[in-house]
């Protein structure tokens, strides 16, 4: 079995993000970049399947700038077998999904695991678009994945509003990982050294013959308004009045 796992290079969630003066994006210089945390969970799940089932190849794939190979190396250091970097300049979600379709056609994986969303733009779209374009079943926001005995189908528990939903479907399929699916491992030191010898293929997105024209245009980016100081009220009556007339929450 082959599992394709997507990896996105995103700013470290612990770094402080500033919007650039033009309001077109964030200031990228000096930022620390990491593997999208939900993608780490996706990698971990693929590695656990490999460890449980044995004959599984885990391929990590990233669509983006050349530097994304750092994040792919992290995936290889965690234990993935090989990597594919599709070089593309700021593709939107639709373009990424179309590129992934080409890779799926080429690689013929049984399972594609993605993080439920990337923590940079929080679009939460690529998995769903990919499933639609391929006509494959999908389970988004999953917190548990179980293979059937014949390994031809899986059962997933999805985290939905107000509870859990259990669904089962035949493979091949698309899965997107939620926070509670697993706890990702650290890349061990031997793993980091082994990763140096693992293959990384580089493909130019333009060579795949897909329409990369952006469907989404960022018109303006602005930081959230700074929180203003609170106000002290003298009495409960004044508080209720403020909640009713000013905040309009009661």
């Amino acid at each position: 079995m082959k599992i394709l796992v997507t990896v996105k290079r995103v700013p470290d969630p612990e770094s402080s993000i500033k919007v650039n003066p033009e309001g077109t994006g964030i200031v990228e210089s000096g930022l620390k970049w990491v593997v999208n945390p939900f993608d780490e969970i996706a990698i971990e799940e693929a590695l656990r399947i490999k460890e449980a089932q044995g004959d599984v190849e885990v391929v990590v794939v990233s669509v983006g700038v050349s530097e994304s190979q750092e994040q792919l190396r992290t995936g290889l250091a965690m234990g993935a077998d090989r990597a594919i970097l599709v070089k593309a300049d700021r593709p939107d979600t639709a373009a990424v999904a179309k590129i992934l379709v080409k890779l799926v056609e080429k690689e013929q994986p049984t399972l594609v695991i993605l993080g439920k969303q990337a923590i940079d733009d929080d679009s939460n779209e690529v998995g769903q678009m990919l499933a639609h374009l391929l006509g494959w079943p999908q389970a988004t926001f999953i917190s548990k994945l179980t293979f059937a005995g014949d390994k031809a189908s899986v059962e997933c528990i999805r985290e939905v509003d107000g509870g859990m939903e259990t669904i089962a479907f035949a493979l091949p399929a698309i899965i997107t990982a939620d926070l509670r699916l697993n706890e990702p491992r650290y890349a061990s030191l031997p793993g980091i050294m082994k990763a140096r010898k693992k293959p990384m293929e580089e493909i130019d997105a333009a060579s795949l013959g897909v329409d990369l024209t952006p469907r989404v245009r960022i018109k303006k980016m602005a930081p959230p308004p700074a929180r203003t100081a609170g106000r002290k009220v003298e009495s409960v009556d004044e508080l209720i009045n403020a909640l009713q007339t000013e905040a309009k929450v009661m």
């Binding site: 750092e70 190396r73 650290y186 890349a187 980091i192 990763a195």
Partner: peptide, 14 residues
């Protein structure tokens, strides 16, 4: 190097 960067991140997390 990429390996040294990954190493730092990984050891820090550990």
């Amino acid at each position: 190097s990429i390996e040294q960067q990954i190493l730092r991140e990984s050891v820090r997390g550990f």
